[in-house]
Amino acid sequence: MNHLQQWLPRLVLAPSFFVILVFVYAFILYTGYLSFTDSRMLPSYGWVGFENYTKLFSLRHWNTALVNLAIFGVLYIVICSALGLLLAILLDQKIRGEGFIRPIYLYPMALSFIVTGTAWKWFLDPGIGIENTFHNLGWTSFHFDWIKDRNYAIYTVVIAAVWQSSGFVMAMFLAGLRGVDNEIIKAAQIDGASPVRIYRKIIIPMMRPVFLSAFVVLAHLAIKAYDLVIALTGGGPGRATEVPATFMYSYTFTRNQMGVGASSAIIMMIMVFSIIIPYLYSELKSGDNQ
């Protein structure tokens, strides 16, 4: 009996463990291997060393994708965190109807990026969306055609992504705010600190772990952003909103350059790992301390 109890958890977990081992980690290894081969349309196994990586970084296209990722990633993470924190602080003022307002902000997260992208494509389209609406209302000088402008199109991706995710970040911060010990705040109030000062000097610094979690969640969403870009701009105008994920798909599956595609996938994985591993490390370390 005792024996069975000891083995039961392992038995139950074994199938999913095995499936993940094969379909995630084995395929990561396989992709890594492919990135060193001369695979074009189908996988092939001629070893070419780092040739695919050299080629990858000489491609103007990949540079565009990296620059776009940098613009998108930074703005997305910063704006989402700032907006999420602000909303959370405002909601935390013990206002009436919080239970009603909170889900409204959180709801966009329930939509898939495809839906968000398609909806925002229509909002932002000058012919049918916001610009057209204002023109019909009589404000004919109103001008908002970023989605059609190759220099600004990447910012429309930021707008749609922020709309989608900031409510979720708000929920994370709200949970963090609710976890702050009331005694500390009361002590500060007795000492005569203003609410702004309390937030700035006491509460926000105490939320460091929440910032870290939000950063990790948002950063990996940014790196793997694919569906939103495809639905919103299709990578255009021209190739102006190409990001690494769309690059990976097009090189692997439509351009018959599987080797280059695999190497870009590996670079993206390295990016994700370089965010996740320090995070896990710090989490595990602080766990040990407690």
Binding site: F23, V24, F27, I28, T31, I223, K224, Y226, A245, M248, A265, M268, M269, V272
Partner: peptide, 11 residues
């Protein structure tokens, strides 16, 4: 990204 690959091959 790996997840996406997985999702693709799964579908």
């Amino acid at each position: 990204m790996k997840m996406r690959n997985l999702a693709l091959s799964a579908s």
